[in-house]
Amino acid sequence: MTFDAIDAWWWPFLFILVGGWLATDAWRFLGVYLGDRLSEDSDLLVLVRALATALVAAVIGNLIVFPSGALVDTALALRIGAAGGGFAAYLLLGRKILVGIVAAEFILLVGLWIK
């Protein structure tokens, strides 16, 4: 039942539909259902948000430490330096997402150029 398991044109689409669409929109629909039943600052929501945030952060950490594609050929220290430097720039220079991204890319490209 992997992505390549069935050799038919529709199988990857069904895989994406069940593994992707159903697995995300189910949560969105649950959110609409609960929308007017839960208070925004109830402790249950704080817990749900904390669990979800840590989980997405884990995805980010893995993307940086165990990357895919062209980033595989870069040094781990450079990737962490670029991400860390970009995040520091974001925190220190007015919390602008764009500033963080540009700083990280600058560090990465300078690092690749020096090498």
């Binding site: 697995a23 969105r28 959110g31 749900v48």
Partner: peptide, 20 residues
């Protein structure tokens, strides 16, 4: 795969709850 995606998307529920 669906389980992993569902786990990574739990955060959508509180987001929608806040938005509705």
């Amino acid at each position: 795969a669906a389980f992993a995606v569902a786990l990574s998307s739990i955060r959508l529920t509180p987001m929608v709850v806040a938005l509705v």
